[in-house]
Simulated assay, not measured.
Amino acid sequence: MNSLTDEEIEAAKSSTDYNLDAQLHEHNDCIRIAYEWLDAQKKIKTIPKFGVTSKHLIESWAGRYISQSDVSVAAELHPEVFGKYPRFNISKMLVEPSTSRLEDIAESFKHSNYRETHRPKRYKSQE
């Protein structure tokens, strides 16, 4: 697991090209969670015409509210991910990340109602 520091996250927040008028960040761990989900995905060479609304998939996987802004910053931080939410260079053949990626992220599973919506069948494969 890549442990992003608060300093790295704060720097990325100021350099992220958000596609929103207002940004929302409840906790830096939300960005760490989104980063881990993106990290598990297969990367492709181009930005697809239609993106994946990954925010909801990440929330249900991690059991915690994640904002679109969090996903945008996570993508900014990831060296292999490019594009603008929701159109990132990730394959539509989604990989369900292992929940072991969340073990050291304190905010994981804080909102159990989100985890109840997790559907492994949305993923083509498991990590």
Rank of each mutant, 00 (worst) to 15 (best):
N2W: 10
T5S: 15
T5D: 02
T5K: 01
E8P: 04
I9C: 00
E10K: 11
S15A: 14
S15Y: 12
Q23W: 10
E26Q: 11
E26F: 14
H27Y: 09
H27F: 06
N28F: 15
R32E: 02
W37K: 05
L38F: 03
L38P: 03
Q41F: 01
I44W: 08
I44Y: 02
I47K: 04
K49V: 09
F50Y: 15
G51I: 00
T53M: 08
L57E: 06
I58D: 01
E59H: 03
W61E: 04
A62R: 00
R64W: 04
I66K: 05
Q68I: 13
S69C: 12
S72W: 10
S72K: 05
A74R: 04
A75T: 11
L77V: 07
P79H: 11
E80H: 13
V81W: 04
G83W: 10
G83A: 07
G83F: 09
Y85N: 11
R87F: 05
F88M: 08
N89W: 06
K92S: 10
M93W: 13
V95Q: 06
E96V: 08
L102C: 03
E103D: 14
E103C: 03
D104T: 11
D104Y: 13
I105Q: 01
I105R: 00
S108T: 12
F109S: 03
H111C: 06
S112V: 10
Y114E: 08
Y114Q: 15
Y114V: 02
E116A: 12
H118T: 05
P120W: 00
K121M: 09
Y123A: 01
E127F: 05
